[in-house]
């Protein structure tokens, strides 16, 4: 456990890049993109909604992959990375679940519908929260970590099946990208800039959380060392 925690400079750089991109996206969205022909100004939620969804997807998938890796060859580093990914995934998932219904109310006329992507997002966020809760409530850290990793791995095929099931079940999410929902170059630029900005923002959060988890792990190891030394001294005193 001598691994150095990464310097805080890396998350700061990512955060700066994310800020720049998000500011640029805001400018393009507010000043440059035309209002949508059918939906009007409401359509502009889209840029943030899809960006947060991208970030959620990326962090969750990375978290599940890292959890699988941690089960096969356990390491504190991978564990901290997996956990920070899942935590940030939950945060972004909540943003998706809030911005989605707001937009849906205006464009579809209702807040919620039982449709593959919505159902999947909701269930995945709930599962991720459960996994994080279990890690906290397990009798000891190592147990919680193993259980959390196993469930995160199980959640991956489950998510694919949930998606398949709800798709068969019926319903349709607008496929904006394929369906020609983007009507102009400005819209396309605004879209990709906000996606990049939000994904970078998620990356900055993951980095920050990763760093704090690594520092926690190091503190725990140092405390262990300290108590070992104290024990040894006490033993010597007795002898």
């Amino acid at each position: 456990m001598s691994a150095q925690a990464p310097r805080p400079i890396a998350p700061l750089l990512t955060l700066a890049a994310a800020t720049l991109l998000i500011e640029a996206a805001l400018y393009v969205i507010a000043a440059r993109t035309p209002p949508d022909v059918t939906l009007g100004v409401v359509q502009k939620i889209f840029y943030f909604h899809v960006g947060t969804a991208f970030a959620m997807l990326l962090t969750m998938v990375t978290g599940a992959l890292l959890s699988a890796l941690d089960l096969v060859s356990p390491s504190d580093r991978i564990d901290a990375a997996a956990r920070s990914c899942i935590e940030v995934g939950v945060a972004f998932g909540s943003m998706v679940l809030i911005s989605g219904p707001l937009w849906a109310r205006k464009s579809w006329g209702y807040y919620w519908t039982w449709e593959p992507r919505l159902t999947l997002t909701l269930l995945v966020v709930l599962l991720a929260i459960a996994v994080l809760l279990i890690r906290g409530l397990a009798s000891d850290g190592a147990t919680g970590r193993r259980i959390g990793a196993a469930l995160a791995v199980l959640a991956a095929p489950a998510s694919a099946l949930i998606h398949l099931a709800v798709k068969l079940w019926g319903g349709n999410h607008p496929s904006v990208l394929q369906g020609g929902g983007i009507q102009s170059t400005e819209m396309r630029i605004a879209f990709w800039v906000s996606v990049a900005g939000l994904v970078l923002f998620a990356a900055a959060l993951v980095q920050t959380r990763f760093r704090s988890l690594r520092l926690q792990q190091r503190t725990a190891a140092l405390e262990l060392d300290l108590s070992a030394i104290a024990l040894r001294r006490a033993g010597r005193g007795q002898a």
Binding site: L127, V131, A138, I147, L154, L161
Partner: peptide, 29 residues
């Protein structure tokens, strides 16, 4: 897995039901 987790009676369905959602949907259908 939950045997050594506190509050597992509450946590068990919390984990189980999302994972079992496909069978529930398919069975009901």
């Amino acid at each position: 897995l939950m045997l050594r987790v506190r509050q597992r009676d509450v946590l068990l369905p919390l984990v189980l039901y999302p994972i079992l959602a496909p069978t529930l949907i398919a069975g009901v259908k």
